[in-house]
Design a binder for these strands. Sequence first.
DNA 1: GACACAGGGTTCACTACTTGAACTGAGTCC
DNA 2: GGACTCAGTTCAAGTAGTGAACCCTGTGTC
Lengths: 156, 156
Amino acid sequence: MRRTRFDEWPCPIARTTDLIGDWWTPLVLRDAFAGCRRFEQFQESLGIPRAVLAARLDRLVDEGLMERRRYEEHPPRYEYRLTAKGRAFWDVLAAMWRWGEDWLWEDGAEPPLMLADRETGREVRPVMVDETTGERLDVRTIRIRSRRGARRAAGA
Amino acid sequence: MRRTRFDEWPCPIARTTDLIGDWWTPLVLRDAFAGCRRFEQFQESLGIPRAVLAARLDRLVDEGLMERRRYEEHPPRYEYRLTAKGRAFWDVLAAMWRWGEDWLWEDGAEPPLMLADRETGREVRPVMVDETTGERLDVRTIRIRSRRGARRAAGA
DNA sequence: GACACAGGGTTCACTACTTGAACTGAGTCC
DNA sequence: GGACTCAGTTCAAGTAGTGAACCCTGTGTC
């Protein structure tokens, strides 16, 4: 009776959910973006149980979002760094950031943290657009459909 | 020894994680976007245990992402619909979709599903940009910082 | 009125996952 | 030799997820 797995489902959202549905995982990734690399750094920053942190890092390495490398020979010390796949995940965290910021401080308060440009210091506010048109996504105009249907519709 | 809660943490990612870190929740929302409204529809579409579905819908209603309304008096029947807060969550799912599509079918295969414009049928490919500049987000140029620090830096 | 059926759940026994604290082990510093 | 650091592992207790069965209200049908 294992927890239902989504990682073989045909839907990209399902597969992604399988990964970040593990409790703590998005926060481990957030800390990695913020510069954490060593086991102890993640552990102290988050207050996460050590066994859970070890399991999460292992999975992120297995899935190819992070890599574990030795950065010191004597004594042997390891660090965890984001790979290209892991860095690409930033868009998901940015979307979570923006939605949380907009909707989870409802009594007129503002979150104490913000995203800012590293150089100019100006606030960054992420939004989702369509890559080809550059226009903001509008749920009402989008639907999920099968690619085969799409090919058929295009006459292929 | 309850699961650690993130819903009061100062970081928007942490608060959002608290919500979608519940197993199944992003898939319930996906189905809601795809048009599901009734308990039975969600249950059949996902194959989710009924008790878990009831708990997830309750929470989504509590948090204000969905509302439960009676759509028929005799017999009494209820449906769950997305609120504005819930619809705004689409950007997070779109980010998950895009990342999953790009990185979770690694052996050259394509996911069998796609996002498409409801009318033209053209594929939609979501990307994150900065609202003011319109440029794609680049992790390396962004950092997380405190708003108070920002005010101080701006001389306010 | 008796029976079957549908929607929308609840209850229950069984596991898998989280938690917090303690422990391990390699290697350095003094 | 003793204290200390990093990077984990082990373990008991408790919480959450799973699958199946059950419940209740109300319809429709004989």
